[in-house]
Structure formats: C-alpha cells, structure tokens
Design a binder for these strands. Structure first.
Lengths: 147, 147
DNA sequence: ACAATAGACTACTATTTCTATATACTTTGT
DNA sequence: ACAAAGTATATAGAAATAGTAGTCTATTGT
C-alpha cells in the first residue's frame, strides 16, 4: 500500500501539473482543494522541492510550481522520493535493497524470484506513466462519465 | 511491502509443498529450517489451516500438511489470507476495498486509474504462480548457480 | 518602513500496525 | 499417566505513519 504521504504527493503534483506555466500555487489552495492536511502537505512539498521537482517562492504571491513539464515527471520517481519502495520484498528492491534476515540463500530463493517478476511488472507501469498521463486520463474519465 | 507474516507463510508453504504426500511436518521443524520465530509461525499456520489450506494433526507424530497439491495453491490466495492487499491503493483493492477518504470523485481520479493498471499487472503474476512453481524455480536457480 | 503573506525548519505527539511472546488448554499416541 | 504437538487468546514492545505546533525567514504591497 502506498503511504498517505505518497498519495498526497501524487495528488498535489497533479494539481500543480494542471497549473504548469502559470503563477505558483499556494499550499493552502492545494490542501483545501484536495482535502489534504495543510501542515502535512507542507512537509511533503518541501521534500519534493529539495529533490528538485518543485520550485517555491516565499512571501505574498508566492507558492509552489513544477520545475519540469508534467510529462517528464514519472510516477516511479515520486514513489521513491516519498519513501515508498516499489518492490514487495526488500531483497528485490533496486533503491531500498535490504537482505531478508530470515533468508538463508538469496540466490536460490524461489519466493524472491517470483517477486522479482512482480517488481518488474509494477516498475514497467510506473516508469512509463507521468503526471501528464494522469491528467489526460482524468479528462478521459470525465468524458466517459458524461456520456 | 509484504509483511513478515506473509513472507513466513510463503516460506512455510514452500517447505510443506516439498513435503506434500508425506507425513505431517512439525511447526518447530519448519521454524528452525526457515529461521522463523516458532510462536509466530504457529499463529500463521493456524490461520492457513482455518482457511482450509492446511490440515493439522495434534499429539505425538502430529504436524501440518497441505490439503491440496502445491500446484493448486496460488500466491494471490496466500497474500490475501495473510492480510496483504495486492493493490497499492485501498480504492483499487478487490478484496480489501476502502474509499480513500481524501478523494473527492473516485470515478474520475487519474491516480486511481493508473494504480488499477498496476494492480492488474501484479495480480496477473500472483494469480498465475503457485507454490509448485516456486519450488520448480528454486530447482532451476540451484542448477544455474551450480554451473 | 512596516504589515501581511507565504514558505522553511525543527520538534514533538498521537495513532496504528507489525512483530513477537506468554500463558493456559486440548488432543493424541505410547 | 505422560509427553508431544497443536489451539486459542491476550498482551507487550517496537517501529512506522500521520499529523500538529511553533518559530523563523523571505517577499510584496502600501
């Protein structure tokens, strides 16, 4: 399961993506629009900024904005920045690798072997999908519901 | 990430799978073989038994065994029994569905739409792979390492 | 210059989930 | 009878998650 942190980050990035190119958006705007606790969102956006995904501007008329085009921000990156390993086992994680302490021989572990496949399948989707894709999916969903 | 409970369950099922058709195996045997805390494993195997996956026999010479052939036990089932939802978001989970409380309109949520794809990709692997498959993968890994 | 706005940073607290252990009980085989 | 082995429930401890509070710093408009 994704943490709330990751979910909130994704939601916020979608909002910021829709706003790309315009004046920065305030935390409080995003928070109220997406039902996210403001102070919590503050921390999350800071992380994303420190990772170089967002820029920020202090003071009156300040706020947050995307540094890159939403089509260049992939979901894997967001998951990793917000602490969520993609893999279901620590021993198959590329970025958060850890030996399973109960495991005797990693090289011949069949469970691990299967979850390597799972990780690859997940990674494929997450590394091919960008914030812009999410936005365009939303438009399509709205249209379909309208019918 | 899978919980230890799920991991231990998988490991134990693999051991029991290799033993299928023979006399039941004792919890303590499995626990020491796989480095699993015995008391914890006890609870896990009980759950699997109550779910109909294992049979048990009390008293001297007792222990646990698989009810079905290892080729008929799929990983999805084990994950679900041990509490691990397959989906990364509660709102796309088939068996542990829950509304995301911050979400305004589930039907038009782009994030949800992507994670539906992720879930389907994961589910495909997990519902096609059985305990028997894990065992045969292990054999192959052992052979490859032997080369 | 000054007040208002808005993010930055640090610390702390609450809650939940996970992992593990403890204890007492029941059944079975010799 | 007695030891082996599972059954059942309760609870403790640890770690991760989620959220809050307060103070500091930068920017803008008047």
């Amino acid at each position: 399961m994704l943490s709330k942190k990751t979910r909130y980050a994704l939601k916020a990035l979608v909002v910021l993506g829709k706003n790309f190119g315009q004046a920065p958006l305030q935390i409080s705007r995003i928070a109220s629009e997406e039902n996210i606790p403001k102070k919590f969102l503050e921390q999350i956006l800071l992380d994303l900024r420190n990772a170089g995904l967002l820029f920020s501007k202090k003071g009156a008329g300040g706020g947050y904005g995307l540094v890159k085009d939403p089509s260049e921000i992939y979901l894997v990156q967001v998951l990793r920045l917000t602490g969520g390993p993609v893999a279901l086992l620590p021993c198959v994680s590329l970025n958060f690798y850890q030996k399973c302490d109960e495991c005797i021989n990693e090289g011949t572990c069949g469970v691990r072997d299967v979850f390597l496949d799972v990780r690859n399948a997940t990674l494929k989707v997450l590394s091919e999908t960008s914030i812009a894709d999410i936005i365009s999916r939303e438009s399509k969903l709205v249209i379909n519901i309208g019918l």
